[in-house]
């Protein structure tokens, strides 16, 4: 980040630091870096050739992978025990179903077949909202392309479009939650409820954060503060946005499509 910059080009040029022979080369190299590379203004030095911010974003997303991996694993591990809650949502019956699993596996398997999670999901509806979220990745790419070309009008259009599509997805999720809730699937009423709302809710929070970032970029752009030399900021938000989309593809497949 620029505010964290440690050495400024101009000041180095006018500095009166006594340099010993061995160190002179280093200083010169450093200068060249700074003068040539305006995009990397904030970093006095970049060993890998990527900016610190971009590297940090990749690392952050790497960490996020593990977060979602843990959440998805939780969902999958719990999945074997879901069916019972959807049958009744009644703790006593649920408890007895659990015992069937231990003591009379054939009977348990038979009961499983009768009941299934799938009817609960409205696959066409969620497919549509997933498609909308995927489309927003496209508009995100377009906005980055626009700002790289210095086309500020289109940058704003595509940023707004991305935020709008993201909001549609969120609205769809809220609608879906309310339907589920009205059908008696509550957060604390069953293991399925806990696991489903936690996993998709965590993703929803990530989308919300993304929409806020997009809107912030839009406001900056409207105030004329998102210039071409800040294209990387748009790219970083884009990275995050694409990550959130990819995670949704995984969640959609695992939660909705795999029986």
């Amino acid at each position: 980040m620029s505010e964290d910059q440690t050495v400024k080009g101009e000041e180095m040029e006018t500095s009166e630091v006594p340099v010993t022979d061995t160190q002179e080369t280093a200083t010169v190299i450093e200068h060249a870096d700074l003068v040539d590379d305006h995009d990397d203004h904030g970093d006095h030095h970049s060993s890998l050739g990527v900016s610190n911010m971009k590297l940090a974003m990749w690392l952050f997303l790497g960490s996020e992978c593990l977060l979602f991996a843990a959440l998805i694993s939780t969902y999958l591990l719990s999945k074997a025990n879901f069916i019972t809650e959807l049958v009744a949502g009644n703790p006593t019956v649920v408890a007895s179903m659990q015992k069937f699993k231990d003591f009379a596996p054939e009977k348990y398997a038979e009961m499983l077949e009768k009941q299934s999670v799938e009817p609960i999901f409205d696959i066409p509806f969620t497919s549509a909202s997933s498609f909308i979220l995927l489309m927003s990745s496209l508009t995100m790419v377009l906005s980055h392309k626009a700002i790289s070309n210095g086309d500020y009008r289109n940058t704003r259009v595509w940023l707004a479009a991305t935020a709008f599509l993201g909001s549609i997805f969120l609205a769809g999720q809220v609608y879906e939650f309310s339907i589920f809730f009205s059908e008696g699937i509550t957060f604390n009423g069953s293991l399925f409820g806990s696991a489903f709302y936690t996993l998709t809710g965590f993703h929803g929070i990530h989308v919300t954060g993304g929409v806020i970032m997009l809107l912030a970029l839009l406001i900056l752009s409207l105030r004329g503060k998102l210039q071409r030399d800040r294209a990387e900021t748009v790219e970083l938000v884009g990275l995050y946005w694409h990550f959130v989309d990819i995670v949704w593809v995984l969640i959609f497949t695992i939660v909705y499509l795999i029986p």
Partner: peptide
């Protein structure tokens, strides 16, 4: 805090999930 069921065995939760994570 919110009464979920991840580790509640009477609701099908599995204590070993905690150990794995």
């Amino acid at each position: 805090t919110f009464d979920a069921n991840f580790f509640n065995t009477t609701m099908g939760g599995d204590p070993l999930l905690w150990q794995h994570l």
